[in-house]
Nucleic acid binder design. Structure first.
Lengths: 189, 189, 189, 189
DNA sequence: GCTTAAGCGAGACGGTACGTCTGGTCTTACT
DNA sequence: AGTAAGACCAGACGTACCGTCTCGCTTAAGC
């Protein structure tokens, strides 16, 4: 019988969600580098200690705030034709990276990961792109014979779009994405 | 022929190179986020105003400091076999991204570009990966019939490795890179 | 007769004395300004609310903790010779102000009284020096003809030593105290 | 030849006096304990680092701010009659301690000295009461034969009023001060 | 023996000052 | 006019304590 209950006042759920929403809002309003722990606390109407008590850096808050959204936006319905499945995923990924608040958070996090190894581990553990990508890969693997192992397949599936967007290119149009998916299917046939 | 010479004391070349060296050193020693304008000036033995006079942010210094090295490290000698050419390029790229100081600078800049649109433009203009990649693409295009247009081809060539390294994965070994090159050659055949 | 008894759990005597002891200890260990309500509660093994419920500030706790000791340490046995009585009192006062924990508490309170008028009232009401001094004055008044009224006599008796100690001087030796007592007796003869 | 000049921008005199005035104002407006380094900087229209660069604590600022005023207010013109000289000094001291901003600063500092030994040393070194008192003592010593050595004489001269005021009593009226001066003259005759 | 009500410990809460740091700007004298 | 030095104002950093609150538990008096 575990039964033991933490003593003292329990954590405030309302403070938690206020912080997560504040981070969401501030990221799009002022950008990642202008988003400060102080600003988050004030925007959320929360004490600064309350923020520091539960999250060590703004990156940690951002991961928690966007993880759920990210997984939802990258989910895809499978089709018999692997090219269509891949195209759908690429279209979702392009929209995510270029137009979604959660995608902006992801890019900010991936950027911060290049500056701070601890954020790097955080992002690697969250595996925000890899998890949805693996769902797609599991499906196309039954139709294509030479899909490489996950770590390469995820990179080949998501890397071109990710690098493209991160270097400032606009999201490719659907026909270009379909051509990209076809090349992948050819390579993995 | 302007002939006119700026009046007053000319810009100090020694201060310029001292700053560029200081940035190189500090990036590997303390990392991008711990590298401050103040620290750069002190390390270079230079006044802070001198740094601000010539570069608006540390990102600008970093671009100037690493651009040349970056291009050099990604040059590749062409072979008759496109797979070998691609493999060599991928190996160079993997080494650049994971082991080279210039590569660390590139990752830091690409990261900062996600936080600051002006740095984004700077990185896009410098086109550090794209330029060497296009040299390779121009060569393999004579042996492969379906290499897509540059903006997609560069992304498909560099994106998988870039995303992989940026999410914390180690550099793939040579056989895996050769397999990756073969898949590209298949897709672009 | 009210006879009515408060319902509910009665105040915990053990918590009360634990707090008073904690304050005594902390004053000598860390000093007045480093002594916090939080620290007092933790040292006493008591909840912070329990402290705030019964005392509004640390000054109030300190008064309660030291008042009794203070009065005891300043009591003096009367002699036929008023100079000897005054000398004994001054010696006790000097020891109290420089060497006694209760004296340290008194000085801290008198100091705090200069910052916070409410503490000033508290200290004035407790009258920690005045009460023992008046006992001495009542005695010497029967041997000396011109002891001024209490409020001046207490100040002239205690003030020199108090100011001296509060400005950092060490306690005078017994002969100097005897000389001081003689001068008082002369002035008040 | 000393001739050497400190390099860099010289200290701003305007910032210095702004801080000193801010401290003067804040002490009377909000009191010592509510006077914060942050508040001083804001009131002075000065950066917080500028305050910390030149003064480690608010006590240090206060000493610098009130030292000059204090000496001026406690100066006294000597008379042939030592009782009159002493009475004048006591009247000045009473006004200083109860009505002057500089006197309020002195009381606050003496209070803080009881909490913080470093402030104690600061106040002891400044010797704000002792210096003016010694001027008076030097004068009356030529008319009175038994003025004790300085450290006791200063305490006997200033201590009664100081303790009286610090324990909350109002300033005595002139006749009471004259009586006090007469007692001192008798004791020191 | 059950109810009632207040005290108790723990610890999270919003708030704010602390002292430090960096950012960018400025003001010197020197080169 | 460019430079090294360093002071300037501004404001975020992460920590500490403030005084309050919200829990579940304890302790007695009174029904």
């Amino acid at each position: 019988m575990t039964g033991s209950v933490a003593p003292g006042r329990p954590r405030s759920e309302s403070a938690r969600v206020a912080v997560l929403h504040a981070v969401d809002d501030l990221l799009v309003e002022v950008g990642y580098s202008a988003m400060t722990m102080k600003g988050i606390a004030e925007r959320a109407g929360v004490g600064r200690m309350t923020v520091y008590r539960w999250w060590p850096t703004k990156a940690h808050i951002l991961v928690e705030a966007c993880a759920e959204d990210a997984r939802g936006e990258l989910a895809v319905t499978a089709h018999a034709d692997p090219v269509r499945t891949l195209t759908d995923f690429l279209a979702g990924l392009a929209a995510f990276l270029t137009a979604s608040p959660a995608g902006a958070a992801y890019r900010a996090l991936l950027g911060e990961a290049q500056h701070d190894p601890e954020v790097g581990r955080l992002v690697a553990d969250a595996d925000l792109l890899g998890a949805p990508a693996r769902v797609v890969l599991d499906h196309v693997r039954s139709r294509l014979g030479a899909v490489p192992e996950d770590r390469f397949a995820v990179a080949e599936l998501c890397g071109p779009l990710a690098l493209s967007v991160m270097t400032g290119a606009p999201a490719p149009a659907r026909p270009a994405l379909r051509a990209m998916a076809r090349r992948l299917a050819t390579a993995w046939a």
